[in-house]
Amino acid sequence: MTRVDFYLLPTDEPVARLQLVCRLAGKAFASLRRLHIHAATPAECALLDRLLWTHEDASFLPHAITHAADPNYPITLGHTVESLADGMALINLADDVPSQFDCFDQVAEIVDEDPDRKARSRKHYRLYREHGCELQHHQLELTT
């Protein structure tokens, strides 16, 4: 059964979402879990690519932008369904839930205070619940 974690941010700043993605990617890498980040757009994918190289002063997170599943990298980024691989963790930033989400052990959804994103997240929640996923919520606080 797929576990879905909803991370609730108390802001609508787009950079806060992406910073959280970098933190989650760091945790996945540290625990040796392969991760795919499913971006909403090519531009968001490119921005995440830059952030993963620079989000920590003393290190970087090894990753690659892919257009097909690639087991050679611990973290992959993509914005197409062809870039998804099964059996690893997924961070979904896309407007829709990928149809093959249940091929992943764990899925993370980032929810912020943007009204449109909140509405989409509610639809995602209902879809995951209908599919019998284990659902978790994490209310986050802003860090300075």
Rank of each mutant, 00 (worst) to 15 (best):
L127K: 09
R126P: 12
S121Y: 13
V21I: 12
Q139W: 12
A94I: 10
V15N: 13
K118M: 15
D86C: 07
P62I: 12
I65K: 08
T54I: 01
L84H: 08
Q19G: 05
L140K: 12
Y125H: 14
L140S: 11
P42I: 02
K27N: 09
A40K: 03
M88Y: 08
A28G: 07
F101N: 01
I37A: 02
L77C: 07
Y73P: 05
Y128M: 13
L32A: 14
H131T: 09
L61P: 02
H55S: 12
A30Q: 11
A58I: 06
V81L: 11
T80A: 05
N92M: 04
H63Q: 05
P74G: 03
F29A: 07
V81R: 05
V107R: 06
A16M: 07
L8K: 11
H55R: 09
V111Y: 07
P74Y: 04
L142W: 11
L18V: 02
A119Y: 11
L93R: 10
T54M: 00
D49F: 08
C45W: 04
E113M: 14
R33L: 06
H131R: 15
S83T: 05
Y73T: 05
T41L: 09
T54K: 09
D70H: 06
T41V: 08
C22D: 06
S31K: 10
A85K: 04
F104E: 03
D95C: 11
G26M: 03
R126E: 15
D116Y: 15
L84Y: 04
P14I: 10
E44G: 02
T41Q: 06
D116T: 14
C45L: 10
A64N: 03
L52I: 03
R50T: 14
A68P: 03
A40M: 03
F60N: 08
F104M: 15
E109W: 10
C45G: 00
I65F: 04
A25G: 09
D49G: 07
D5T: 11
H63E: 00
D96C: 09
A85L: 01
H36N: 01
R33Q: 13
H38M: 13
R33D: 05
P10L: 07
G78H: 04
W53F: 11
R122L: 13
R50Q: 14
N92G: 08
Y125P: 10
C133A: 15
G78D: 00
Q106H: 15
P62G: 09
D57G: 09
S31I: 03
P71H: 00
N72F: 05
E13M: 08
V4R: 01
T54A: 01
R50N: 12
P98N: 09
L35N: 02
R17G: 06
H63I: 07
L32M: 09
D70F: 07
S121A: 15
A39V: 07
D5P: 06
H63V: 00
